[in-house]
Computed example of a mutant assay.
Amino acid sequence: MAAMTWQAVQAEALRRIRAREWPPGARIPDEEDLARELGCARATVNRALRDLAEAGLLERRRKAGTHVALTPVRKATFEIPIIRQDIESRGQTPGYRLLSRSLAPAPAPVSALLRLPADAPLLHVRALHLADEAPFCLEDRWINPAAAPGVETADLTTISANEWLVRNTAFSGGDIDFGAVAADAGTAALLGCAKGAALFEIGRTTWAGAQPITAVRLTYGPGYRMRTAI
């Protein structure tokens, strides 16, 4: 069996933190013990934990060991919703349509946003989410396959990339922006609105430590009201 990568070690550490196997304030096992348990080199564990410490999830002190932060996030956090569940929470019936998927280098702005080489192959997915059979949200997403093992073979005709990533990848942080955009002709046709209509758009990137997972633009139909938790 191949040794675990630092990304896999980080994902396991994140799982234990979120499952409260390592509760806030608890001292986690020493690097040597974790390396022995997970079947990898101590340097691999060190790399994974260093990123989590930089993200504020762990506190590392010399001679005192590594502890789960009591207040791991010192700022408001945005919950990444599963769009299907968001629609269901509004009392509507969700629907989903995969518009396209391809593996190709991303446009320069996307590669720069994810800090990846211009020729790095990314999975590009475009999908339309429906609520009571009416257009609800247009998902335009680029995924780094190296950070999401299995996504290249996932059946994204039955589950959206949004839901697949939430269920199958662990992230440590990201960036998000909100804004209003005017619908171009293509977007207006997909969302069933007039060209030039004001639409609510969310741009988001997520990361596992220093490794980018995805960059997505979610464009919602007219009248959308965002609901989230902080």
Rank of each mutant, 00 (worst) to 15 (best):
M1T: 12
A3P: 00
M4L: 09
M4R: 09
W6A: 14
A8E: 14
Q10I: 01
E12D: 05
R15V: 09
R16Y: 10
R16E: 10
E21V: 02
A26C: 11
R27N: 04
E31R: 12
A35T: 11
G39V: 02
G39R: 03
C40E: 07
A41H: 07
R42C: 00
L49V: 04
R50S: 07
E54S: 10
E54P: 03
R60G: 02
G65K: 00
T66L: 02
H67C: 01
A69Y: 01
T71K: 08
P72V: 03
P72G: 14
P72N: 06
V73A: 14
T77Q: 09
T77P: 00
I82D: 14
I82L: 15
I83E: 07
I83L: 11
D86E: 09
T93V: 13
L98Q: 14
L98E: 07
S100R: 12
R101H: 08
S102R: 02
S102A: 09
A104K: 09
A104D: 03
P107F: 08
S111N: 07
P117L: 11
A118H: 01
L122W: 02
A127V: 02
A131K: 01
D132A: 15
A134M: 09
F136W: 15
C137R: 03
E139D: 15
W142I: 08
I143K: 13
G150E: 10
A154I: 09
T158A: 04
A161W: 04
N162R: 14
N162F: 12
N162D: 13
E163K: 11
W164A: 13
V166T: 15
D177I: 13
A180D: 05
V181F: 08
V181N: 09
A182H: 10
D184M: 07
G186P: 08
G192N: 08
K195T: 15
A197R: 04
F200Y: 00
F200P: 00
E201L: 13
W207T: 05
G209F: 02
L218V: 03
P222I: 14
R225S: 00
A229N: 03
